[in-house]
Computed example of a mutant assay.
Amino acid sequence: MEVDQIDKLLERYLHLLHQYTTLREQLSSLQTGIYQNIARANFAAERGMRFGQDYYDERMQASRKVAIILGGDQDVPAFAVAAGSTEAGLTQSEQGAAADDGTKDASKEKKEKEEEEARELRKGQRKDPLRWFGLLTPMPLRQAQAQSIEAIERVIPKLVSVNAQMTQVEIEVRRARKKRAKAEAAAVKQEQEVSAGSGAEITV
């Protein structure tokens, strides 16, 4: 029974290993594409203009957030990445509006909602790193950003999640092997005791 359980765990591990290897290849391909596109953008850039981390400034901040979810019987963590909120909290005037008793008419509420959506859109545009380098962003730079987003939002979270599952399966395999070894040792000991008892009866 323990052998069957170990075989199933090892089979699952091989499937996870295949996923891990595939994701690593995808990540490597995306990273290669990112560097190549940044190099193309720099090659075609105007004199004195460079695209890279040396030209980041105080506007540089994380635009993605990591969410770690525990689930399943073993509480294996699953990782996900989502776009961060554009602004945390409300201004004092917005807080006052939120505490209103709801007597405003529908047209005014609609207007405020449209203004808020426009304000959030402008905030999101200001935080787009591509806008740091001017309005006419080179296409290779846009492609590099798209590849970076794919790597951050899709490939890396899956890669880390699969790695966590592999670690958990490794732990389960070690536990199953220890349990099997104890069962085998107990069976050998019992067999020795039975043999010893049979030998004593024969001697008598």
Rank of each mutant, 00 (worst) to 15 (best):
A196V: 02
F43S: 13
G72P: 01
R177T: 08
E87N: 11
K65L: 03
N42Q: 09
L27Q: 14
G134S: 02
A83K: 12
R177C: 04
E11Y: 13
E201W: 11
I68D: 01
G71P: 12
G96I: 09
V173K: 14
K113R: 09
L70C: 10
K182E: 02
Q74G: 07
A186C: 04
L10S: 06
L9H: 15
R12N: 12
S148L: 15
K108Y: 05
P138F: 09
D4V: 11
Q31E: 12
S29Q: 13
L17C: 11
E170Q: 15
R180N: 15
L70Q: 06
S63K: 04
A164P: 13
S107I: 05
Q147R: 14
R64Y: 09
M166L: 11
A98L: 14
Q5K: 06
S198L: 09
Q190K: 09
K182A: 02
A80E: 00
M60R: 07
S161C: 04
L27V: 10
G72M: 05
A97Y: 03
E2P: 06
S28Y: 05
R64W: 09
L141H: 01
A151Q: 10
A88H: 05
A98W: 06
K111G: 03
T137Y: 01
L159C: 03
E184M: 01
E115A: 06
S28M: 10
V204A: 08
N37R: 11
L135F: 01
Q5N: 14
K108I: 03
E153A: 11
A187L: 12
G52V: 02
Y55P: 00
R142K: 10
V188W: 02
R154K: 15
E112R: 06
A82W: 03
E46P: 00
A62W: 02
T167N: 14
E115G: 05
Q143N: 15
A106Y: 04
Q61N: 08
V160Q: 10
L14G: 07
P157A: 08
G96S: 06
G96W: 06
A41C: 07
Q31N: 14
Y35G: 01
S93M: 05
A118C: 02
R174V: 12
L27W: 11
R131H: 03
G197R: 15
E201A: 09
E94P: 04
A187V: 01
D57V: 01
K178M: 05
E116D: 11
E184G: 04
N37F: 02
A185H: 01
E201L: 15
E191K: 15
R131K: 13
I171L: 13
T86V: 03
A67W: 05
Q19T: 12
I171W: 08
A44E: 04
T32A: 15
F51R: 00
R24G: 10
D7Q: 14
D73C: 08
T137S: 09
L27P: 06
N163H: 13
